[in-house]
Design a protein around this nucleic acid. Sequence first.
DNA 1: CCGAATTTTGAACGACGTTCAATATGAGCG
DNA 2: CGCTCATATTGAACGTCGTTCAAAATTCGG
Lengths: 201, 201
Amino acid sequence: MAKTVRRGTGPRGDHNREEFQALVTKAAEGLVRLEGLRGLGMRRLAAVIGYAPNSIYNAVGDLDTVVLRVNARTLERLHDALVGAVSPDATPRDNAVSVADAYLAFVQADPQVWSLVFEHSLAPDSAFPEWYGEALTRTTDLVDRVLAPMIPDADERRQAVATLWAGLHGLASLSTSRKLAVLTPEPPRDLARLLVRRFLG
Amino acid sequence: MAKTVRRGTGPRGDHNREEFQALVTKAAEGLVRLEGLRGLGMRRLAAVIGYAPNSIYNAVGDLDTVVLRVNARTLERLHDALVGAVSPDATPRDNAVSVADAYLAFVQADPQVWSLVFEHSLAPDSAFPEWYGEALTRTTDLVDRVLAPMIPDADERRQAVATLWAGLHGLASLSTSRKLAVLTPEPPRDLARLLVRRFLG
DNA sequence: CCGAATTTTGAACGACGTTCAATATGAGCG
DNA sequence: CGCTCATATTGAACGTCGTTCAAAATTCGG
C-alpha cells in the first residue's frame, strides 16, 4: 500500500499579503542584525518564519528583493532618526553637527543592518530602483534645508550636501568594518564633528 | 573488466609555490575586474588557470584567502599610484588635492577591483590581518607627510588624515555603486577637490 | 633505484537559491 | 449547501557552489 503523502496545506489565512511581506522583511532584518549579510539565506529565512521558501518567492520575490525591502526600511528609519536631530532654534552649524552625530549614532546602534544598504550592489545593467533615490533624497533634503541659511546658492549647496553626505558615509563605513580604528583611536563621531566643522569653515 | 580511472597526475613542475600563488591572485583579480565579486568562484577560478580547485586550496587556501591576496595587491597598486602624485616643489595644499585626484582616478580606472577591498568583510571574531594595517598606514603616512607642513601637531594631523581618508573613501564608494549620481551630477573628482580644499581651509 | 614528501586529481558531501508541479484551502456564487 | 476558481502552500528536484577526502602521480634526496 502506497502511503499518500500530504503536500500543500493551502492558505492559512493568518496573514494577508502585506502582513506577510512585513513579517518576511522584519525576520530578514533580524537575521542580518545578528549575523550580517552572510547570515541571511532563503531557506533559513523561511525556517525562521515557519513557512516554506516558496511562500517567500510567491509573496515577495527572490533574495535580492528581500534585501531591497530591508534596505528601504532602513532608510526610513534613518530618516526618522535624523529628523529628530534638527531643532529650529539652533544655528545651521550646530544643526549640521547634530545631524552628523545622529547619523553616526544610528550606524553604531545597528551596524550590520546599516551596512546591508551598501554591501548590496545591484546588477550593473539593471536601473536603479526608484524608491531608493526617493528615500535617499528625502534624507539629504533634510541636510539641504539645514544648510540653506549658510549656503544660499542652490548649486553650491547641493555639492556641499553630497560631499558631506559621502564623507559621513565614509567614516561610518570604515568604522563598521574596523578599518578606521587602524588609523586613529578617536571615535568616528569626533571625526564627523571635525569634518563638518572644518568643511563649513 | 573494470576500466581503471586515472586520478591524480602529480606535480607538473611548471610553477613553484610562489609563482602559482601569483598566478591564482592575478587570475582572481581578472575575474573580479570583469564581473565583480559575484563573478569570483572557486571552481571558475580553477578552470581559468587550468587546475583543479584542490590545487588552489593546497597552495593558497580558501576563497577568503584568495580575496585577501587580491586586496593586498590592490593596496600596493594604490600606494604606487599615489606616490606618483606628490611633487616636492608643490605646496602642501596642491599636493593634497593632487593625491585626492590620483585616488579617485585609480578607483575610476579599476572600480570593481577597488570595491573588493571594501566589499569583503572579515568574520567579526577574527583579528585584523596584519599586512592590511601595514599596507593601509603605509598609504596614509604618505598623506600624513604631505600635510605635515600645514598641520604641525601630530595628533591633530592624524585625525585630519583619517577624516580626509574616510571622506575620499566615501566619495569613491558611493560613486562606484552609482549612489552618488543620484545626489548630484558633478563627477566625484570635483567633489573630492571641494572636500580637500574646504577641509584644509 | 627506492622511499618519502608533495602535488594533483576525481569524487563525494552538504548547503544553497531557485523552479516545478501537485495539493489543500478559502472565497464567490448558484 | 455544493461547485468552481483563484491562490497560498508545499515537497521534491535541479543545478551550482565551497570545501573535504582519499587515491594516484610525480619529483627528489639518499
